[in-house]
Simulated scan of single mutants.
Amino acid sequence: MTADDEERVPRPNVQGAAAVTKGLRLLQVIAELGVDATIRNIQARLGMPRPTVYRLLNTLEQERFVERNPLGGEYVLGRELLRLTHQSLARSSLQERARATLRAIGKQTGETVHLGVPFGCHMTFVDKVESPEAVRMASYIGMPVPMHSTSVGKAYLAALDEATREQYLAQLTLEPVTHRTCTTLEALRNELTLTRERGYAIDDQENELGIICFGQAVRGADGRVEGAISVSVPRYRLPDDGHQRILECIHSLCSDAGLV
């Protein structure tokens, strides 16, 4: 290599590389600490000044690589990591158990099917079966959606024990996504009560005009509620008795798979 060639080789940004290394180590520490990933414990494990830890956390939180658990205040790995690692890492136990069910529901209904799990105060789609129809709900794996305006969110909240549900409700921002969205705690609590009584949730154009969704809470192998499955249908394509057929399909196939 000549002197001129050496001049053209970009010099490494030492500060930038160090920041990346610190950020990656912080992600590792959050994963290692789990429910104990508080700011105090993260700082102690990293051995960095608190301002540095705060700066790294704020940057990663803005990019959705980490999120703060609204229930306990600890930090958790964010939904952006989920999106990036979806294709390269093994699917979670719930995804593996639910995948065949999603396909079966999609085949029987001909509509888009989602599996959503909670991330912070949102639900995130972690798996999806696309409808073959030209007109269908626009969504993607890794997409965050509100709890209060979606069938996956309401089905999940309704299936929780009262104490945990109230912790979530205290943290939710009930913003109107459409003019049909529940925007008060009283209205949302009433909707969740109805959801528990009938065993399924409905999002009737509350999150996207023209789209109606039916949600069913699903449980992990240990019996705890872990997320929800939904079927999304353009409103114009749903016949008067179509909702009953879809609901029976969801419940029957989820029951057969041991998800409810």
Rank of each mutant, 00 (worst) to 15 (best):
S232I: 03
F65R: 08
E80P: 06
H86C: 08
A158R: 13
E67F: 06
A170F: 03
E7G: 11
L188V: 03
Y156F: 15
M137D: 06
M1D: 03
L24H: 05
L247I: 15
G223L: 09
L259M: 11
L94W: 07
E186V: 12
V231A: 05
G258Y: 04
E96I: 04
G73Y: 03
P132Y: 09
G215F: 09
F65P: 04
V117C: 00
S139W: 02
R196I: 05
T112Y: 02
D241W: 10
R198H: 11
L102V: 03
P146T: 07
G120F: 01
A217D: 06
G23K: 09
L60Q: 02
D256C: 14
G215V: 09
N13L: 13
P51E: 02
C249A: 10
A159G: 10
R64I: 10
G227A: 04
P132D: 07
S255R: 15
V231P: 08
S232N: 08
G106P: 07
A217F: 05
I212T: 11
V53W: 06
H122L: 07
I229G: 04
L57M: 00
T195Y: 14
L77R: 08
Q28L: 13
G73S: 05
V14E: 11
M1G: 13
T109S: 06
D4P: 06
Q216T: 14
D222L: 14
T164N: 06
E67K: 07
A217H: 08
T184Y: 08
C213Y: 05
L259W: 09
E80S: 12
R198V: 14
